[in-house]
Write a protein that binds this DNA or RNA. Structure first.
Lengths: 196, 196, 196, 196
DNA sequence: CGATAAACGAGACGGTACGTCACGTCTTGCC
DNA sequence: GGCAAGACGTGACGTACCGTCTCGTTTATCG
């Protein structure tokens, strides 16, 4: 009855608890310091999880950062459907550009896309939890518009998705200063004109 | 005791010679091992230039890699003007996608775009020596088509540039496997339809 | 679904079987890789015994190595008594030096003596299963010689034991290259001269 | 006048200063915690020297400990020559046994001899800075006695050295409790009787 | 034209991070 | 209940780079 209340920290713990701990710390570091700030060392230091365990669960620090990011911000992006395609797309695109340019999530996401160029695990996570879901949402909205007759029947909606969001991403990655309200307007108008 | 066979390499040397040496080594490393392979240490080891000097001339290893890349492949991309906009754009886009997907320059360029997300020097170099020149070339071709009446007068050609190349870049960075011949066809067609 | 082909190894097993298994694996590792090669992890990996069980039975990996060594090579050392003390001692000493210098048991034993300097369990095992038994055998031989009048009556035979084997051990531990045939001859002669 | 007196610590420093710093810290750790307490990590943490530098200068933590020990206690052991060999040897042996059994240097030295069994750099240092110098001193004393006619002419003094110190080392390493005053007396007497 | 200052090479130094290994602790699921 | 399997925190190892700093050498420049 000597009361060994003090949890030493060693020994096995529930995997979920450990993973959540690590992801929380990683998400915090990611938003505060960018992808480069998420290292195995720092995540271990700012959580209860040991480096050894981090290595066991994630193939790279960037992969950990990616999972942390996508776990923390899963739902985020919905596209309201008011019936007015142009307005809906423009609103969503504006919110997205705002996120990228004015919230800490922007640099984080840019950093993850960057990391994906040399880290297959990050690329896979990016595709699975980010790129493809958003592509589906945008595509679905355009398809609904197509069924309403607002878009031409033969148009490949995925191409239109790229011409709106892909173009925007490209500017955000290479010339972020040029992503203005006017540019976003033109982007949506031009894309819809081609699809009408 | 006249022969000074052993060129020690020490002492002052013409700056240009030194810079060229460093850039050559950096370019080689970049193409062979990617951006991450270009470190001050390795460039110094595989050239006659010392780390001290590298630090003096370039703010980061990635910046050195960028300059090496753009110096080595300055002219590269021209856009032939046959009068047939669609064909010209399609040809250029195809050559570009090929470069990105099937030559060592592809990973290098992807890596540089990635590095630019966390390295302002790289971003600046990328904009100055790569993004803007190519944007100008593409824009000029579209303007010529516009003057020939092949494109509507009010269209912002830079938006069209983004809808072709920007969209393509986005796929190359996030879902490279989906960049197929058919996709490129659709991209050009769709963009031109919107600009007609 | 009768066949229980897969012997899972789990569940309770006879303690002796488990211990023998562990000791066998430890002995193998000890002879092949030295004391440092005997770790709980490696013994568990190269036997059917789990780490949990190893920790339960042995206070340290070196202690396990020690027990493995002494269990495997208990009888080993006999000292033939032909009546000629000098020849008998010299023969035994030669065999011992040979063992230490030219068999895998040599490094193992040197390693155990080393481990004993910072591991009381190893020291205790070493004394009980190695040092004292051999000291008894050598002492008994010398006492027989003493009773035959070949050694002076007042001589402390344990001191003579040290002056032969102890001296030899010291050289084997600190200057193994200097343990030559001539040295062993001189050692025995000198010790017996002092004891005559 | 912001006074940037604060030495950043980075950059090159005189090699001797660095080495001395490291050796000081290592010596302290060695005496306080034994050989196992001297790790690259701890030496770096308790000195101004970085781990990288320690790895550059010493092949193993034990080798660093060895150099620290021998640098700190170079002269130590002299053997006074009063003309009475027996008394001189006995006095020196007593002082040595005392050092080994009752000072922090004892465990340190035992640990270094142990480390030498699996670390050639330690073995070499031990031989060069400890074993051979002391063997020379003891041998020289015995040779002087030999020239004075106190020892027989044909006796190999190095064998006598082993029979005194070697025997003592062996007991100190394997049965330290048995190294008593009486034992040391017997050791010297017995060895000298054999050499008379 | 010779002395001087600038630029260079070599490379050590304090750090941070990586990826691995072993230790000792602890939990879960078989048998 | 005892065992295997195996995850966990800890701490050490050895390596790669980074950015800083020192030293000695060589060369361009200027007195």
């Amino acid at each position: 009855m000597t009361a060994q209340l003090a949890r030493s920290g060693r020994g096995r713990r529930p995997a979920d608890e450990v993973r959540r701990d690590a992801l929380d710390a990683a998400a915090r570091l990611l938003l505060e310091q960018g992808v480069a700030g998420v290292t195995y060392d720092r995540v271990a230091a700012s959580s209860t999880v040991s480096r050894t365990t981090l290595y066991k669960w994630w193939p790279s620090a960037a992969a950990l950062a990616a999972e942390a990011f996508f776990t923390a911000s899963e739902p985020e992006l919905e596209l309201v459907d008011t019936g007015d395609v142009r307005a809906d797309l423009r609103a969503q695109l504006g919110a997205f550009a705002d996120l990228m340019l004015r919230s800490p999530a922007g640099p984080a996401l840019r950093g993850l896309i960057a990391a994906a160029q040399s880290d297959d695990a990050v690329l896979a996570a990016l595709q699975e939890h980010y790129v493809r879901p958003r592509r589906r949402i945008g595509g679905a909205a355009l398809e609904r518009a197509q069924q309403r007759g607002q878009l031409a029947a033969g148009v490949d909606v995925q191409v239109v998705v790229d011409q709106i969001w892909g173009a925007c991403y490209y500017r955000l990655l290479t010339e972020p200063d040029t992503v203005t309200t006017g540019y976003l307007d033109a982007l949506v108008s031009q894309a819809l004109r081609g699809a009408r």
